[in-house]
Simulated scan of single mutants.
Amino acid sequence: MEPTREPESSPYQPPIPAETQTRRPSRVWLLVGIVAVVLLVVYAVFRLGSSGEAPPEAGDDVVRDSDPGIDGIIAADAPASSFVVGDCLTSFTSPLEPATIVECETPHTAQFIGTADLDPDIPYPGKPDTTEKAAEACKQIKLDTDVLTSQRWEYQFSQPTGGSWEAGDRSVDCFLAVTSPDETATGTLLPAESAEETES
Rank of each mutant, 00 (worst) to 15 (best):
E6Y: 11
E6H: 09
E8W: 08
P11K: 03
Y12V: 11
P15L: 04
P17T: 00
P17Q: 00
P17G: 03
A18F: 15
A18R: 12
A18P: 13
Q21D: 01
T22Y: 14
R24E: 13
P25D: 00
S26G: 09
S26E: 09
R27C: 01
R27I: 08
V28K: 11
W29D: 04
L31K: 07
L31D: 00
G33H: 04
A36W: 10
V37Q: 00
L40C: 14
L40W: 08
V41K: 00
V41T: 09
A44Y: 08
V45F: 12
F46E: 00
F46M: 01
L48D: 06
G49M: 07
G49N: 14
G52S: 07
G52M: 06
E53L: 11
E53I: 09
A54L: 11
A54I: 08
P55Y: 00
P56W: 02
P56K: 03
D60T: 14
D65H: 10
S66V: 11
D67E: 14
P68R: 01
G69R: 08
I70L: 12
I70R: 13
I70Y: 09
D71H: 10
I73T: 15
I73E: 12
I74A: 02
A75V: 07
A78N: 06
A80I: 05
A80N: 04
A80Q: 03
S82N: 06
V84Y: 02
V84H: 05
V85A: 01
L89D: 01
L96G: 10
E97T: 10
A99E: 03
A99W: 03
I101P: 03
I101R: 02
E103R: 13
C104W: 05
E105N: 12
E105F: 07
P107V: 04
I113H: 06
I113M: 06
G114I: 04
T115E: 14
A116T: 09
P120G: 05
D121V: 07
K127T: 15
K127C: 00
D129M: 11
D129V: 07
D129R: 15
T131Y: 05
A135C: 06
E136V: 13
A137F: 10
A137T: 10
C138L: 07
K139R: 15
I141V: 08
K142F: 10
L143R: 13
D144Y: 08
S150Y: 07
R152Q: 14
R152H: 11
Y155G: 05
P160H: 07
T161Q: 09
S164Q: 08
D169M: 04
D173W: 10
F175S: 01
V178I: 09
V178P: 02
T179L: 04
T179R: 08
P181Y: 00
P181N: 00
T186M: 06
E197V: 13
T198C: 07
E199Q: 15
